[in-house]
Simulated scan of single mutants.
Amino acid sequence: MGNFQLEDFVAGWIGGAASVIVGHPLDTVKARLQAGSGYGSTLSCIRTVYRRESVFGFFKGMSFPLASIAVYNSVVFGVFSNTQRFLSHHRCQEPEAGPPHVLSDLLLASMVAGVVSVGLGAPVDLIKIRLQMQTQPFQEGGYGVATKVMPGPCLCL
């Protein structure tokens, strides 16, 4: 992997991780409101989650997207750039000698990357939403020991 690609991978992971950390609490509120769990408003949902589950309730389901964001971003951006290169090569036979990427190449590369993005992102989102929808942090386990309802993405699968 070249230096440029490694920098892209690291930048994609850092940017993706930052977006997950910053946006996840609001995404949790959005998921709860969309489920129609009887929260009157956004502010009511925020207060209820905080009161019942503390600040940690806003971060349920965050571990899996955070762990997978580097792979997700690198695959999607890699598919986009490789598709673009492939199209350019087959259109010009020598990509360096040909004109810059044409709009049709960009459009097709974006479509292919979008399909891959949905294929990778949908399962991650499903697991994240199932974990976010847990409103009870613990359930009674055997011998009176409290255990998490769905302790993580592996058991959610």
Rank of each mutant, 00 (worst) to 15 (best):
V49W: 00
V49L: 08
Y50G: 06
Y50E: 06
Y50F: 12
R51N: 04
R51C: 00
R51F: 03
E53I: 01
E53V: 00
E53W: 00
E53C: 09
E53R: 11
E53S: 11
E53N: 13
E53Q: 15
S54C: 04
S54P: 00
S54E: 12
V55Y: 10
V55M: 10
V55T: 08
V55W: 05
V55G: 05
V55E: 07
F56P: 00
F56I: 07
G57R: 08
G57W: 05
G57K: 05
G57V: 02
G57I: 04
G57C: 06
G57L: 05
F58G: 06
F58R: 02
F58S: 06
F58E: 05
F59M: 07
F59N: 02
K60N: 10
K60W: 02
K60A: 08
G61E: 01
G61W: 02
M62D: 01
M62Y: 10
M62W: 10
M62T: 08
S63R: 14
S63V: 12
F64I: 09
F64R: 04
F64Q: 10
F64N: 09
F64H: 13
F64K: 02
P65M: 07
P65N: 09
L66R: 01
A67I: 07
A67Q: 08
A67H: 02
A67E: 05
A67F: 10
S68G: 06
S68I: 10
I69E: 04
I69N: 01
I69C: 07
A70H: 05
A70P: 02
V71M: 13
V71K: 03
V71I: 14
V71R: 03
V71S: 10
V71H: 09
Y72R: 02
N73E: 14
N73Y: 10
N73A: 12
N73P: 00
N73H: 11
S74A: 15
V75R: 11
V75L: 15
V75N: 11
V75K: 12
V75G: 10
V76Q: 02
V76T: 08
V76A: 03
V76E: 01
F77I: 13
F77T: 15
F77W: 13
F77R: 14
F77D: 12
G78V: 11
G78P: 05
V79P: 11
V79H: 08
F80R: 06
F80W: 14
F80S: 04
S81N: 14
S81V: 15
S81P: 00
S81H: 15
N82C: 11
N82T: 13
N82K: 15
N82R: 15
N82E: 14
T83L: 09
T83R: 07
T83H: 03
T83Q: 09
Q84M: 13
Q84F: 11
Q84P: 00
R85P: 00
R85F: 14
F86A: 12
F86P: 02
F86K: 10
F86H: 12
F86Q: 10
L87I: 14
L87Q: 07
L87Y: 03
S88Y: 07
S88G: 12
S88Q: 15
S88E: 15
H89S: 15
H89W: 11
H89Q: 15
H89I: 04
H89G: 09
H89E: 14
H90I: 01
H90G: 04
H90A: 01
H90L: 08
R91M: 07
R91Y: 10
R91N: 03
R91I: 06
R91D: 06
